[in-house]
Deep mutational scan, measured.
Amino acid sequence: MQNSHSGVNQLGGVFVNGRPLPDSTRQKIVELAHSGARPCDISRILQVSNGCVSKILGRYYETGSIRPRAIGGSKPRVATPEVVSKIAQYKRECPSIFAWEIRDRLLSEGVCTNDNIPSVSSINRVLRNLASEKQQMGADGMYDKLRMLNGQTGSWGTRPGWYPGTSVPGQPTQDGCQQQEGGGENTNSISSNGEDSDEAQMRLQLKRKLQRNRTSFTQEQIEALEKEFERTHYPDVFARERLAAKIDLPEARIQVWFSNRRAKWRREEKLRNQRRQASNTPSHIPISSSFSTSVYQPIPQPTTPVSSFTSGSMLGRTDTALTNTYSALPPMPSFTMANNLPMQPPVPSQTSSYSCMLPTSPSVNGRSYDTYTPPHMQTHMNSQPMGTSGTTSTGLISPGVSVPVQVPGSEPDMSQYWPRLQ
């Protein structure tokens, strides 16, 4: 039975679970980093996980050691009161100082060594604690504590007292930064006198190289990059290397530039699409467009005044059976039934097929058609009795279509119309 579990990581490298990497692998990681390889490249070359490479390099940059820390136990506290007071002093002298600059000053002034120097995250935590204590304490208590930490007896009751030896409130920041720059020169002199001055200088240079600022491109470089971006948004590694040799930039910087440029292009394309949609959409909808001609068919113009009344309900007709019959029939052209047409008796099958359309009241044959006459024609229609054979009435077949029909004066039988409509 094995005491430890061995495995293979996602890159194909072998590791022992819970145990640190061998010293030979750690040394190779540092050597590759000094030669300029990126952590992701080191991870692929040595088949070590990216997190492990970053952790080893980060500890090497901070402490200069590649040895693993002790497994188990607690780390001794490195942010001692003396170190905290120095950090507060540096922050007062130059409020814009960075944590890694404070760390360098602690090393250069001999406050800490490589073994007990606090990390950048520890210094940031100390600065946050100082800021929170400043908010919790009152103004007087804060000034007393700062005077105690600074070891001075001057008056701290006013704002300019934060910067000793100065009279203009805006000047101390520059003086403090100048003092810090002077301390940086002392850093070089002190570290050069040490035993491991060369190694420390190499480590600091490598650290500065990794902690780079934003790349500033010249106009020629920007023009070359934009020209390549117009050709393709995704250049391959050969195109990037050719462009890197042409404009004297690292291939990694060119790759990052193209990634950022593609993101910018997507944002601009989104804005262009929004403007295009806004320009195509009308600002207001016309009133006429809300009524579609496919839904509402136009009603033909009436030929006679009587045809303006298109349904039985508008003429005072309360018989719903006839109203439904007229509205359900398709529109037909106007025609006239003459008196000489043969009077065919209704076929029983045809009569039964339209039995649902006729009223059940037996008085329908005896009703006159003056009910369908509009009010303004009552006088004219009353002067001509319906009993004469020459009287013409208008029957409504569908809305908007008038059918003048000659009705025999002897017997106005409704059943004569249905064979004609089939």
Rank of each mutant, 00 (worst) to 15 (best):
C94S: 10
K145I: 06
A99G: 07
R44Q: 09
L57I: 14
S35N: 11
L57V: 03
G36E: 05
R128L: 04
A79N: 06
K86S: 11
I56S: 03
S132Q: 09
S49N: 03
D104F: 07
F15T: 03
N114C: 14
G138K: 06
S108P: 04
D23K: 07
F98P: 15
E133H: 12
E62F: 06
S132M: 14
Y143E: 10
Q136G: 14
V14S: 09
C52V: 08
V111T: 14
R103G: 15
K145S: 08
I66Q: 05
L46C: 11
I117S: 13
P39V: 05
H34C: 08
V120F: 00
I42A: 02
V14L: 11
E101F: 08
V53N: 02
D41V: 10
S108M: 12
A79C: 00
K28V: 06
I87K: 01
A79V: 06
S4M: 12
I45D: 15
S132F: 12
A139T: 08
P118H: 03
N9R: 02
H34F: 14
V14D: 05
P118W: 02
P39S: 08
V48W: 04
F98Y: 11
D115F: 12
H34L: 07
T25E: 08
A33G: 10
S74A: 01
Y60T: 00
L11Q: 08
L127A: 15
L146P: 10
V14Q: 11
C52P: 03
I66C: 09
A131P: 08
G110C: 10
L32W: 11
D115E: 11
E62A: 06
G138P: 14
I97G: 08
G110T: 11
P118Q: 03
V83L: 04
N116R: 04
G138C: 14
K86W: 12
R147E: 11
V16R: 06
R67Q: 12
R59K: 11
A139C: 13
I97Q: 08
I117V: 06
E101R: 13
C94Y: 13
G64N: 05
Q10C: 11
M142N: 09
T80R: 11
H5M: 13
I97F: 07
L46E: 02
L107D: 10
E109N: 10
I102R: 01
R128E: 04
R67C: 12
T63V: 06
Q10M: 11
R103D: 03
T25Q: 15
R19I: 08
L32K: 04
N129M: 09
K28M: 07
G18I: 02
G141S: 11
Q47V: 02
D115C: 13
V111D: 14
L130S: 15
N124C: 07
Y61A: 14
K75A: 07
L130E: 15
Q2N: 08
I45A: 14
R19D: 00
V78L: 03
T63W: 03
I29V: 06
K28L: 07
I29Q: 03
Q136H: 13
A33K: 07
N124F: 04
L130I: 13
E101N: 14
K55S: 04
D144S: 08
S4C: 13
V30F: 04
F98K: 15
V53C: 06
